[in-house]
Amino acid sequence: MILKTTNLSKKYQHKDGVVNALNNVSFEVNEGDFVTITGASGSGKTTLLLSLAGLIKTTSGQIQINGFEVTTASDRKLSDFRMMHIGFVMQSFALIPYLTAIENVMLPLAISKLKKNQKYEKALDLLKLVGLENRKNHLPQELSAGQQQRVAIARALVNSPSLILADEPTGNLDPSLSTDILNLLKKINREEKITILMVTHSPLAAEFGNLKIKLSEGELENEPKGHNNKI
């Protein structure tokens, strides 16, 4: 088991009252799983993803990733944990516009102790993995949306994470590019044995997961479906 949430709840104070963004969410994910999280807008999908990464504080409950207690860790420890164990893929790609493709991929290594050429070689290998080695010196605006997302995926892999958190990775892509990206994520999941948690509203994308979680108004709508997992 790589990830376990226990009675995870997140409440927001709103002028109209308390909003239960997450309510007693418990599930487990095994190493190598490809988990898809679906649900309507406002169902708590992104809140769950942010909570798992320690980017927002939950109201109650526990999150354990690789034995690391996320909910009680300090900001600094969480940063270090994210740097070493988690890769992120976002809908908006979140590439730095003034860095080339290879510089964007190397970005998480900026504070690592690796040598300059080791960082470069690692980033280049990943650009090869996502099929963009010939675009390494291109700026994001010189790349297509699909290519930008591939660079973002390479960046998510550069620290050899055990878990990738993907938030609508195909949300800005047309259907054919979406399939390419989903296939790439699946390939990484299968070949690199990296666990992936992907938030999506696309039924097509949801089919790529071996474990499917559906949220409704902050609660698990159904027991996660898939092998080797339980609530």
């Binding site: 980017l55 900001d75 270090d80 994210r82 740097m83 988690i86 900026a110 620290n159």
Partner: peptide, 16 residues
């Protein structure tokens, strides 16, 4: 802001 937020997200701590 987005860029700094992204750096924080991928593991740059406040000191960095």
């Amino acid at each position: 802001r987005k860029e700094i937020g992204m750096l924080r997200m991928i593991g740059f701590n406040k000191t960095v």
